[in-house]
């Protein structure tokens, strides 16, 4: 890390240089000087994002062995593998900020760092695989497209890769739901029931309303966030309504209607008390998700040890 001693610059001058880079919409790169708060905010945000990808493998992984055809199984496997890949891109970006991988893994396992609450809801039917692709990945894309322009270079570059791949995730989900909607009444009912369960949690993915999001202003000033939570939520609703119509499902919000004056949809608020309960660890699957992650980590310990021992021995023999 660069310190004021190393460059012979005063911290005020470093701060000015940092501010100038942000002001001209340029990117901060890992070895640049940055305010401690900027670094901390990014580590927290990127780590949470990475953990979400890793935990996000579980709800859909639940259906891999029960996918209804080989085609659907191959698609689902590829998608879950992508989530692992996205987690790795993001851990890699987070490590450029000085966080270590072991430390990040530990913080996920012991709960000191969070992941997105959306993954604490169960996947009760196969339609959920489609709904997650359509609504959950759709909301993620809405969040992530502006993050491609985030001020920290490695995070933005990871987001560009991720967004390209998320498009496949959303489309496979929507196509799955379209197929079910062309099926039997029972299948259509499954889709509607699934959409009813995931609609509000999907809206919660954008975070609390702006008035209750104290860090948003600072994150936007630093160019980490490019839009407020409410802006992105509105954008998501406006994008999703015509998709729901085309699909033939009803979004479960009695207040949802087009507002001609605003040129946007009015819609109801999710149950934020419920949201806080899930964030605090009391959602339907919090304990199960972490227990599963811990077990996978522990079960893999011998593989990591064996690979380390093998690498040590080969380098001895070669050396």
């Amino acid at each position: 890390m660069t310190t004021s001693d190393a460059t012979g610059m005063e911290s005020r001058e470093l701060q000015e240089q940092f501010d100038a880079i942000i002001a001209r919409n340029d990117r901060i790169e890992p070895r640049d000087w940055m305010p401690e708060g900027y670094r901390k905010t990014l580590v927290r945000q990127v780590a949470q994002h990475a953990h979400s990808e890793i935990i996000g493998m579980q709800p859909e992984g639940n259906w891999i062995t029960r996918a209804p055809s080989l085609r659907r199984k191959a698609i689902l496997l590829a998608k879950v593998q992508d989530e692992a890949g996205h987690g790795l891109y993001l851990y890699s970006a987070c490590e450029t900020l000085g966080a270590s991988r072991g430390e990040l893994t530990q913080k996920l396992l012991d709960g000191t760092q969070k992941y997105s609450s959306i993954f604490n809801y169960p996947t009760l039917s196969y339609a959920d695989v489609g709904t997650i692709g359509w609504l959950v990945d759709g909301a993620a894309i809405c969040n992530q497209v502006p993050l491609c322009r985030t001020s920290f270079g490695p995070y933005g570059r990871a987001m560009i890769r991720i967004c390209k791949e998320e498009s496949f995730h959303q489309r496979q989900g929507y196509e799955l739901l379209m197929t079910m909607m062309r099926g039997t009444d029972e299948q259509r009912a499954m889709v509607q029931e699934s959409v009813d369960r995931f609609w509000w949690p999907a809206l919660m993915m954008f975070g609390p309303p702006d008035a209750e999001s104290p860090n948003t202003a600072q994150s936007m000033a630093w160019g980490i966030k490019r839009n407020t939570n409410d802006d992105l939520r509105q954008r998501f609703v406006d994008m999703t309504v015509p998709q729901a119509e085309a699909l033939g499902v009803t979004l479960p919000d009695p207040d949802l209607r087009w507002n001609d004056e605003r040129g946007a949809h009015d819609f109801g608020q999710p149950d934020w008390d419920d949201f806080m309960q899930v964030v605090k660890g009391n959602g339907p699957c919090n304990a199960q998700r972490i227990a599963h992650r811990r077990k996978a980590h522990d079960d893999g310990a011998w593989v990591r040890e064996a690979a380390t021992a093998f690498a040590a021995r080969t380098s001895e023999v070669a050396g």
């Binding site: 890949g85 890699s92 450029t96 380390t308």
Partner: peptide
């Protein structure tokens, strides 16, 4: 394109392919 962890060089190439 990014970075990754691996026990040795060969594993790094394999992981790079997958990631």
């Amino acid at each position: 394109v990014g970075s990754l962890h691996a026990a040795d060089d060969d594993m790094a190439v394999r992981h790079a392919r997958d990631v």
